[in-house]
Design a protein around this nucleic acid. Structure first.
Lengths: 164, 164
DNA sequence: CTAACCAGTTGTAATTTGCAATTAGTTGGC
DNA sequence: GCCAACTAATTGCAAATTACAACTGGTTAG
């Protein structure tokens, strides 16, 4: 994909991966929305991504080893996209980015709830969530008896929806 | 700048501000490189930003209230760009993003040192650095007797340069 | 059988971005 | 007071990205 880099700066290299309007949106929807199929990502996107842009970003992120792609055993035509370990480790970055957005940009109330919960939860909550992603996406079993961070995020969002 | 947003999601809105290849590079150079003038940002950029792109991003970031622009009293032609409080609060985001980049991308050793120091320092170090940015960019005096985080970052970088 | 679904692809137009050269005004050295 | 270098941009053109709509070859549920 990119054999020549603009510089070896960590922030620059991260921007070479995610420095566009759509890549992180795709990661976000897979990570927090558990959207694993092309159509889920296409139709479920609040931002209305175009099918060719989605196809391009999926292919690109697979090439950069941020996502992996596998046929769906239960449906010969479907393809399942999974987060790789590097992508899972974006959780703290996205948590901080979301928290910053809530503080400084005109976010909608119902979509802010999860970002706020993610921020309040702090590193312990992020670790719990990342273990859950490793289970869902990498097939690595997570510790028994630990409550689901994903369920808490979902519950907070549903509760906020019901309040309105 | 953008009266219509794709969605009210915090991450999406943050991407509408920084979702391109250059905006965060500019912020990074002002924040960590203390580059305050157009030419410093243009010539000092490792990544080689073009002058029209730099001009566009500066204007855009000023419009979005991430930067402020003021004439330089000591030189009638110069303009000084400063971080605003929202931009200063990106420090934890950039710290996490840099740490992620060091871990998962082919960063160069000398440019990684600062990111590693920034990560190891944790929230207390970030707060110290942000207070220093508030002094430099907003004119808010910082607590007396607190050592300079900026100097520590600079020293770590110089030391690594000397080692090679 | 057939209609809906699946992950894309193709074509085209509009928009955005990048690069090189240039600009009008300012400054410092002599 | 002259001139070369500096300053923050701007202009013209090429290239890349994005949006929108239609379409594809195969799959599946009823």
């Amino acid at each position: 994909m990119s054999l020549e880099h603009r510089s070896g700066c960590p922030i620059n290299l991260a921007l070479e991966v995610f420095g566009d309007k759509w890549s992180l949106i795709v990661i976000r929807d897979i990570m927090f929305g558990n959207r694993r199929h092309f159509n889920e990502l296409l139709a479920g996107s609040d931002e209305g991504i175009a099918s060719n842009v989605l196809a391009d970003r999926l292919q690109r992120l697979v090439g950069l080893h941020m996502l992996s792609r596998a046929p769906d055993p239960s449906h010969k035509q479907k393809v399942v996209y999974s987060l790789t370990e590097p992508a899972i480790q974006l959780v703290p970055v996205l948590a901080h980015l979301g928290a910053w957005g809530v503080r400084h940009l005109p976010t909608s109330r119902e979509l802010s709830v999860r970002a706020e919960l993610l921020e309040r939860g702090g590193p312990e909550f992020w670790d719990r969530f990342m273990d859950e992603l490793r289970e869902q996406h990498l097939g690595i079993p997570r510790p028994l008896g630990v409550p689901s961070a994903f369920a808490e995020l979902r519950a907070a969002y549903e509760a906020e929806l019901a309040r309105a």
